[in-house]
Design a binder for these strands. Structure first.
Length: 564
RNA sequence: UGGGGAAUAGUGUAACGGCAGCACAAAUGACUCUGGAUCAUUUAGUCAAGGUUCGAAUCCUUGUUCCCCAGCCA
């Protein structure tokens, strides 16, 4: 093993898989699985697990199963199943024929339980939930045997069968593994295998009124599917001895479990419980709110599957808890979007500009490059006329040092159009700037001066008469704190919600955007990446800001205000 | 002395007894019809203390800190 370099550069999970392949531990097979519980929407943390499991299968010539771990009818819904299937597929992964449901194995699990009971390794217990907790002991104190622990095998078999038949009310009895109430690992103190719940299951309906506990079900699901590497998160490390015990007692196929650290990201929360709360309390518009770290939210925000996949490989895999900087996610996003997004011009906060020496009623079409990063993307026409809109923040009446954009008397370039010089500032009675008057230099058509003179800034713009109105939603971090859980006394993460995480503006966009399809991604030049909202239409254009462009000017401004 | 896991720049990771490397972030400069992109440069790290060794992030000892476990949730 030491001599082998096949593991160099691999993360520790892949290193194990590579070594197992080398030693032929599984007869050349690599079978992984992504086993979500359909009780919520998938988030970026799940993407890490999805990319790990499907990625390993793809890299090592194996297969990866998508399996719903649906053993708790009270929390699971078909809606979640549907969203999970959509999200995994959207991320670009394919499970082929291997779509499974834990509930499909209920009968087999039941038979396995009977086998254990027959071996005297499981018993029906009449203790209440509260009593079970008391009998379990504590972290430092051993537990006490249940008074029902030594029932006869016949009685256990009879009672368990009657549990299944529905003869007993919810919570009245459980089937427990007979292990060791003095075990230092609490999971080994006669864990519950089945509980009685008369609830309708989203797939099995009312066929069952006893449901397997996760610890009992999960290992069996992996075993039945002949998984080779059961990759899960750190908190299940303590459960591994229990899975081992079950599988060994049963003499069943035994996958290898490998635990890795779940993903944490700055400025957001990552547990289904907390995300559910944000949805239920109306802090966001729903599971797919573009501010949510859910896959569906990120999709609606304008993230590309490639960006998310790239992020998942960049963060690596490890066994210790860490918090990844949101900036890395945004870096991966920009990296992909820069290469793939067509550029367009849009003005978020319009300031009217009149080109006083441009003939009234005249207009022309100018050529604009669709994507300077992609020659194949070609060019398009953008209309130019006497009245335009530019970005309000691209003009300053009294420009500070290093402000290169438009100012009185200053010449700048309108992208792909002309050089213009500001000649007059029009204000209303309150002194607010309402309009700018400029002159243009006809010789600079297309954006270059034949005399070779330079300008320090290039501005984006739209023609007032041709521009389309659009609602643009400017998103920012959902939370103001890097770690939202760090809240004051008596408060929790909700108190760290960013009140400015969404600002809606009425923008003017170039006419080509009339063809924008829902979820279509664009770069609004000089502003950022934007995506047509899922509900955007020709009648009402809506764009979501995915992420801003990196902005040197913002940094300069910050520097100027910090050191006056 | 309950059990289990883990510690490498600000952040995320690599190095498998042999020059502590990469990326993000930050900073500086070049270039630019996006203050974008791109390119170059810089800042910054082995939890601590001992030990083994020619040589230790890596092996050993002791300690410190952090995470997980007391659901009939997963």
């Amino acid at each position: 093993m030491q001599g082998s370099d096949s593991q160099a550069g691999l993360d520790f999970v892949r290193a194990i898989v590579a070594e197992d392949l080398e030693t032929d531990k599984w007869g050349g097979r690599v079978v992984t699985r992504f086993p979500p519980e359909p009780n919520g929407y998938l988030h970026i943390g799940h993407a890490k697990s999805i990319c790990l499991n499907f990625g390993i299968a793809a890299e090592f010539g194996g297969t990866c199963h998508l399996r719903f771990d649906d053993t708790n009818p009270e929390k699971e819904e078909q809606e979640y199943v549907n969203s999970i299937i959509e999200d995994v597929r959207w991320l670009g992964w394919d499970w082929g024929e291997h779509l499974y449901y834990g509930s499909d194995y209920f009968e087999q699990m039941y038979e396995y339980a009977v086998q254990l009971a027959k071996a005297g390794k499981a018993y029906v217990c009449d203790l209440t939930a509260e009593q079970i907790r008391e009998y379990r002991g504590t972290l430092t104190k051993r537990g006490t045997d249940s008074p029902y622990r030594n029932r006869s095998i016949e009685e256990n078999l009879d009672l368990f069968e009657r549990m299944r038949k529905g003869e007993f009310p919810d919570g009245s009895r459980t089937l427990r593994a007979k292990i060791d109430m003095g075990h230092p690992n609490l999971n080994m103190r006669d864990p519950v295998m089945y509980r009685i719940v008369h609830a309708e299951h989203h797939r099995t309906g009312d066929k069952w009124c006893i449901y397997p506990m996760y610890d009992w079900a999960h290992g069996l699901e992996d075993s039945v599917e002949k998984i080779t590497h059961s990759i899960c998160t750190l908190e299940f490390e303590n459960h591994r001895p229990l899975y081992d015990w079950f599988l060994d007692e049963l003499g069943a196929y035994h996958p290898q479990q490998i635990e890795f650290a779940r993903l944490n990201l700055t400025y957001t929360v990552m547990s289904k419980r907390k995300l559910l709360r944000l949805v239920r309390e109306g802090c966001v518009g729903g599971w797919d709110d573009p501010r949510m770290p859910t896959i569906s939210g990120m999709r609606r925000r304008g993230y590309s599957p490639a960006a998310i996949r790239q992020f998942c490989t960049r963060i690596g895999v490890n066994k210790f808890n860490s918090t990844v900087d949101m900036a890395l996610l945004e870096h991966c996003l920009r990296e992909d979007l820069n290469k793939t997004s067509p550029r367009v011009m849009a003005v978020l906060r319009p300031l009217k500009v009149v080109i006083t020496n441009y003939p009234e009623g005249q207009s022309e079409e100018l050529d604009a490059v669709n994507n300077p990063e992609d020659a194949e993307a070609g060019t398009r026409k953008v209309p130019f006329s006497r009245e335009l809109y530019i970005e309000r923040e691209d003009f300053m009446e009294e420009p500070p040092k290093k402000f290169f954009r438009l100012a009185p008397g200053r010449e700048v370039r309108l992208r792909y159009a002309y050089f213009v010089t500001c000649t007059n500032v029009v204000k209303d009675e309150a002194g607010n700037i309402t309009e700018l008057h400029c002159t243009y230099d006809p010789a600079t058509r297309g954006g270059d001066a034949p005399d070779g003179r330079k300008v320090k800034a290039t501005l984006h713009w739209v023609s007032a008469a041709h521009a389309l109105e659009a609602e643009v939603r400017l998103y920012d971090n959902l939370f103001t704190e890097e770690n939202p859980d760090e809240a004051g006394e008596g408060e929790d993460f909700v108190s760290n919600l960013n009140p400015n995480s969404l600002e809606t503006v009425s923008a003017r966009v170039e006419p080509s955007l009339a063809a924008a399809k829902p979820l279509g991604r664009y770069q609004f030049e000089r502003l950022g990446y934007f995506c047509a909202d899922a509900e955007s239409s020709k009648e009402k254009l809506i764009f979501n800001r995915t992420v801003t462009l990196r902005d040197e000017w913002v940094k300069i401004q910050k520097g100027q205000t910090h050191k006056p």
